[in-house]
Design a binder for these strands. Structure first.
Length: 270
DNA sequence: CGCACCCCCTGCCGGC
DNA sequence: TGCCGGCAGGGGGTGC
């Protein structure tokens, strides 16, 4: 589910519910996530007050009043929701963080590829591999050129490498390459400067627009208030194999890159 | 060392 | 109707 726009939408929808609230109880039902939940998560979280929620790539950082950070990654199927503390528990509700406001912040994740981890910024080594953020950071064309210079991998894989650029996943990589008119299999090192410029613009345009619309609503995506995203009606290539290109009516192709479904218009993308 | 591949896990969908 | 294979928005480890 979550790429940068969904994570950012989630962050914004959580702010008013969470920031300023104090943790009164933590209820863990499943510790086996991407990595086992910290043994003392409950003890360390109780009594703490959330001071801010930040985002880096696809990671959410819940800042606490003791200088620690609760790091959350939603993986493929993770959700966060704020509910009345009295609300019933659903299947795959793994962690419930009860707040002083009478609500609970609930982490639900059927596939358990998500992550919750408590620590200081320096201790959270996951963050060491998080690259530039497409919306928080801005980098010049020369940086694009330097980053791609010796990389022979497909440009789509380049875009999805979180160590380089953080936050782009499979849907938006496909969408921004369509927007830029570049085929996903092109080797990063072979892109011309003019193409990198188009890609840079397309990246920010696609992500900003998706954030503006509240993220993608593929499957059952919801923000913390249960609102769906509206990006899916704007998908131009993702999951549109064998359907006509919205621009030129050429049939959209599906290929597989590094095991991930990849879609492009053979006429609009070169 | 860059990169492709496989795995982690559950749910859902289409085909038989 | 039910079972089974394939696929799904992510990331990390392995091995070539």
């Amino acid at each position: 589910m979550p790429e940068l726009p969904e994570v950012e939408t989630m962050r914004r929808s959580l702010l008013t519910h969470v920031v300023g609230s104090t943790v009164v109880n933590v209820d863990v039902r499943e510790r086996r996530l991407r990595r086992p939940l910290d043994a003392n998560l409950e003890r360390l979280l109780c009594g703490r007050t959330f001071t801010a929620i930040d985002r880096r790539g696809k990671y959410l950082l819940f800042e606490l009043d003791d200088g620690q950070t609760l790091l959350v990654h939603l993986g493929m199927s993770g959700h966060l929701a704020v509910k009345p503390a009295a609300a019933g528990t659903l299947a795959h509700d793994h962690v419930r963080i009860e707040l002083s406001s009478g609500t609970a912040l609930v982490f639900n994740d059927p596939r358990r590829f998500g992550l919750l981890r408590l620590g200081t910024i320096l201790e959270l080594d996951e963050l060491r591999n998080v690259g530039c953020d497409p919306l928080l950071d801005h980098w010049p064309l020369e940086t694009w050129r330097d980053m791609t210079r010796d990389r022979r991998l497909p440009i789509k894989n380049f875009l999805m490498d979180q160590k380089l650029i953080a936050g782009i996943g499979n849907i938006y990589a496909n969408e921004m390459l369509y927007e830029a008119g570049i085929r996903p299999r092109r080797r990063a090192s072979r892109l011309r400067l003019s193409e990198l410029r188009r890609l840079s613009k397309a990246m920010r345009k696609v992500l900003r627009e998706a954030v503006r619309l509240g993220g993608s609503s593929i499957s059952d995506y919801r923000d913390a208030d249960g609102r769906p995203g509206y990006f899916q009606i704007h998908h131009t290539v993702y999951d549109r194999a064998d359907q006509p290109c919205r621009r030129c009516a050429t049939i959209i192709r599906r290929i597989v890159l590094s095991g991930r479904s990849t879609f492009y218009c053979p006429k609009c993308q070169k």
